[in-house]
């Protein structure tokens, strides 16, 4: 990837992030923050590569810490976001569940 292409990717991704979020209702701010927190858990693949290429004991130690933290970010972010979003239901769904209305 050349520098300029990387810069274009950066620019387009920045606009994408802004556009995707700009019309989100306040009721979803907390889950969405948690969801975006999960998305940067992609740092896990970078941590894996960094540890995979580590040579000295120091590099390996830091690499292990990196993978451990990144896995925590990805898994934890997913679990709490899923738990929060699972609870969002409309009145229709409530009625169907209770078998009334």
């Amino acid at each position: 990837m050349t520098g300029m292409v990387a810069l274009y990717i950066f620019m387009l991704a920045a606009f994408t992030g802004y556009e995707v979020i700009s019309r989100v209702p306040v009721i979803l701010h907390t889950p969405l923050m948690s969801g975006s927190n999960f998305v940067h858990g992609i740092v896990l693949v970078g941590a894996m590569v960094a540890l995979g290429n580590a040579v000295t004991t120091l590099e390996k130690t830091i690499g292990v810490i990196g993978v451990l933290l990144a896995a925590g970010n990805a898994v934890g972010g997913y679990v709490v976001t899923e738990r929060m979003l699972e609870m969002f239901k409309s009145s229709g769904q409530r009625g169907a569940k209770k078998g009334t209305h």
Binding site: I9, G17, I21, I42, V43, G46, A50
Partner: peptide
């Protein structure tokens, strides 16, 4: 930070995901 490290590792998934979160998070 994830996006920047994505540049270092030449990893497009990290660049895109990190930058999207960076800008969405700033707006939020």
């Amino acid at each position: 930070a994830v996006g920047l490290e994505g540049f270092v590792l030449d990893n497009a998934a990290m660049i895109i995901a990190g930058t999207v979160v960076g800008s969405a998070g700033t707006l939020l």
